[in-house]
Design a binder for these strands. Structure first.
Lengths: 220, 220
DNA sequence: GATAGTTTCATACAACTGTTTGAATTGCAA
DNA sequence: TTGCAATTCAAACAGTTGTATGAAACTATC
């Protein structure tokens, strides 16, 4: 094991290249060239290309999930087991948004890698994502405790929409900038977080009857 | 040109295979085998694999966009140039949701293909998507006319969030079903449309000051 | 029914992919 | 130093990919 230098050089190079160019057109040869190591080193240290990708993704996922749960737990402890819904939602979408948006030069390689992972869903990553449900369930639980009057269905839809707004904004941030001709400032991350949390909160706290039939006009 | 039989057989086979297995692992050889034509036919009729994919995507995009604009125009004409925001949003997300959700066996190949296209963004499709901005601008215009007091920034964010909820729900429909243990019924498309429209409407019509600072707790 | 243009076909090509091999090198313990 | 395991390396492998080629088959026109 000695130095682990080769191993971590591969990880760093792979993350950087995937972040920049996507999974589609980055080959093992690109990675080892960038890392300055031998081609066979990847299979020696990771077993296969897929396992290399999986390791990268797992590492970053764990970090984000831990950050999310840390915020959630802190909030619930402070509120005696019940946190305000805004704070829960903030814990859910905040870490991801903060990691992936903000000024270009401040966006970490790790964050850009995770954006790629969310855009180009590649087999090894898809397998891991399926395990993320347990993590989301913890948030669903906290939301239920925060809004005990709300039905489970509404809770899940609220959770779904919160993630939707956060992830879509990240994925399509370029398009939103272009569409709005720069008027939507995606570098102001805290504003984005506030907007997402605000809308998701409204979705979860609006009068129940309106959820299914918002108005006579919009109703089927 | 004669019969066009080969050409359309390729298109049909390609759409079916891409819908079922994704772009990643469908080769030209798979397509021509499914279509019962010769390998060289693809390059003869379409020029390249990318142009085949692009043609498929453009065809389907045009159909959806036309449907959207048809609904939008009808609504604006009925309202004398100003449609209620709910109706505009419904025209924006309805056609896509209706095409891509609903009972599995009713989902057309075309719809499943478009889901794939939204999940696995492949170069030729990405190029086309960038041209879709003009289309979205028409909706932004209608929304502005419907909500003249709203700032442009709020309009664009509302548009962004509406698309976010619709697309994310389509992309992650399986996960939502699993997470909610079947409680969220994605086969009831009109309910999904109503939920998305409802939340997007709230996002666009809520008190302006709250948009940026929903509450003292959630504010930075 | 010959001719010209279009379409199909089998086949080859060139490039690239992830992975394997077995020998060379290194680092460390005895 | 010697010995042994861990690591690195160049090279080759086997498979797949999209594309190109040139001959064959077809189709319609005169």
């Amino acid at each position: 094991m000695a130095s682990d230098h080769t191993r971590s050089a591969i990880l760093a190079a792979a993350e950087r290249l995937y972040a920049d160019r996507g999974f589609g057109d980055v080959t093992l040869r690109d990675i080892v060239a960038e890392a300055g190591v031998n081609l066979a080193a990847v299979n020696y240290h990771f077993g296969s290309k897929d396992e290399l990708i999986a390791e990268l993704f797992v590492t970053r996922s764990i970090a984000t999930n831990r950050e999310r749960l840390r915020e959630l737990k802190a909030a619930e402890e402070q509120g005696g087991g019940r946190a305000p819904i805004e704070v829960i939602l903030r814990a859910l979408v905040g870490p991801t948004l903060r990691g992936c948006l903000g000024p270009e030069n401040q966006r970490s390689t790790a964050a850009r890698f995770m954006i790629r992972a969310s855009i180009e869903s590649v087999p090894p990553i898809r397998r891991i994502k399926n395990r993320e449900i347990d993590h989301l369930r913890k948030f669903a639980g906290a939301m239920r405790r925060s809004l005990p009057d709300r039905s489970d269905v509404d809770i899940y839809w609220g959770l779904n929409f919160a993630l939707a707004m956060a992830h879509h904004t990240i994925r399509e941030s370029e398009r939103l900038t272009k569409l709005s001709e720069g008027k939507c400032d995606l570098d102001d991350v805290e504003d984005v977080v506030a907007r997402v949390v605000s809308v998701a909160t409204m979705a979860l706290t609006a009068g129940r009857s309106e959820a299914k039939a918002p108005s006579k006009v919009a109703a089927r």
